[in-house]
Lab assay of single mutants.
Amino acid sequence: EAHAAIDTFTKYLDIDEDFATVLVEEGFSTLEELAYVPMKELLEIEGLDEPTVEALRERAKNALATIAQ
């Protein structure tokens, strides 16, 4: 499951495998979680700032909209 989540994140969020791995290690496994989890939870991840989190959430929401079509 972790590998599938990493693949999904790299494909749809335009991030590298290392960043995707950090997200999975922090407990995220779906685009929905990244799109809708409280921003505070993402900001608790070391190295993430508000602009990065906002961009990540926007990419996740856009990916979900694209997949739904």
Rank of each mutant, 00 (worst) to 15 (best):
A63V: 10
I45A: 03
L13W: 01
P51L: 12
T10D: 02
L34R: 00
V24A: 08
K11H: 11
F9Y: 03
F9Q: 01
T30K: 07
A35M: 11
E50L: 15
Y36T: 15
Y12T: 04
T52H: 07
A60N: 01
R57A: 06
T10M: 15
T30L: 06
G47H: 06
P38A: 06
T21S: 11
E46Q: 12
D18W: 14
K11I: 05
A63C: 03
E17D: 09
D14E: 12
A60F: 01
M39N: 07
A63F: 03
K61T: 06
S29G: 09
E17W: 14
A20D: 01
D18K: 14
P38D: 15
D7P: 07
D14L: 08
I15E: 01
D18E: 14
T10Y: 04
V22K: 15
T21C: 08
I15M: 06
M39W: 04
A2L: 13
E58C: 06
A20L: 03
T52Y: 09
Y36G: 10
V37T: 13
I15V: 10
I67K: 06
L34Y: 00
T10H: 07
A65F: 03
L64A: 04
T10G: 05
Q69S: 12
E54N: 10
H3M: 14
Y36E: 11
K11E: 07
Y12M: 08
I15Y: 01
D16I: 05
L23F: 03
S29Q: 12
K61D: 03
E17R: 15
E41F: 06
Y36P: 01
M39R: 09
T21N: 11
V22N: 08
Y36W: 11
D14F: 08
L56F: 02
E50P: 12
S29Y: 15
Y12W: 15
I6M: 07
V22A: 11
P51Y: 11
E50G: 13
A68G: 11
K11N: 07
D49M: 05
E32I: 08
H3I: 14
G27W: 03
L23R: 00
A20W: 02
E44L: 14
T21I: 12
H3T: 12
E44Q: 15
T21F: 11
T52G: 10
I45M: 06
E41V: 13
T8L: 15
K40E: 14
T66N: 13
E44F: 10
F19S: 04
Q69M: 05
L13K: 00
M39V: 13
E1M: 09
N62C: 09
I15R: 00
L13Y: 00
I15N: 00
L56Y: 00
E46H: 14
P38K: 05
